[in-house]
Computed example of a mutant assay.
Amino acid sequence: MAELRIRWQRLVDDAGKTCGRCAGTGDEVQEAVDLLRVALAPLNISVIAESSHLGEAEFAQDPLESNRVWVAGKPLEEWLKVQTGQSRCCGPCGDNDCRTVSVAGRDYEVVPKELVVKAGLLAAAELITPSE
């Protein structure tokens, strides 16, 4: 069975908290993974969800590494050929600018499940091989 890995990364502070933006993206990623599992099972592709976190020191060095999603080892924005941006965040992120995704002139602070599903389907297409 082929595997499609989807990884989500975000800041988790010393108190174990993350910002609302990252928490929302985490929820959207989980919904996308659930949808992809159902859609790709008949093609013998399993979908594996992974999450990782940045500590406060790592985040301070590069806040735009938080709220990132990778699909099959590539950033979501590469699969979708979209831009990333940044906007002021809150909570554990403080006054830092955090990652956004820009699609067709619209900026998303929380990555929508539809974008994760689309990237997942593009990645899954590369895993499909003819049977012998």
Rank of each mutant, 00 (worst) to 15 (best):
W70R: 04
G24I: 06
N67D: 02
L11W: 05
V33Q: 00
N96W: 04
P130W: 14
I45Q: 10
K113H: 07
L43A: 15
R5T: 07
K113N: 05
E50F: 09
A57R: 12
Y108H: 15
L54R: 04
T129D: 15
S102G: 05
A41R: 10
S51T: 12
E50S: 14
W8T: 00
G105L: 03
G94V: 06
L36I: 02
A124C: 11
E3P: 01
L80K: 13
R21D: 01
L43K: 09
R37A: 07
E50M: 13
S51K: 11
S52M: 08
A60N: 15
L4N: 12
E56W: 14
A41V: 06
S102L: 07
A57V: 07
P112I: 14
A125M: 12
E58W: 14
A123N: 12
T25R: 02
S131R: 13
V69P: 00
Q30Y: 03
F59D: 04
P130T: 15
A123S: 12
F59Y: 10
E109H: 09
I48T: 14
L43P: 02
W8N: 04
Q61I: 14
F59A: 01
K118G: 05
D95M: 09
A32H: 02
G94E: 03
R68P: 11
G16P: 15
P63D: 14
S52N: 04
A23D: 00
A119R: 04
S51E: 13
L35C: 03
L80A: 13
V71E: 04
T18D: 00
A32E: 06
A125F: 13
V110T: 08
E31Y: 02
G24L: 07
R88H: 11
F59I: 05
E78K: 15
W8D: 06
F59Q: 01
G16D: 06
S66Y: 02
Q86R: 11
E78H: 15
E77D: 06
D34V: 06
L121P: 05
E132K: 10
L36F: 05
P92I: 14
L122H: 10
G16F: 03
W79M: 10
L127S: 11
E109N: 12
V29Q: 01
E126K: 15
D14M: 09
G16Q: 02
L76V: 02
E65Q: 14
Q30F: 01
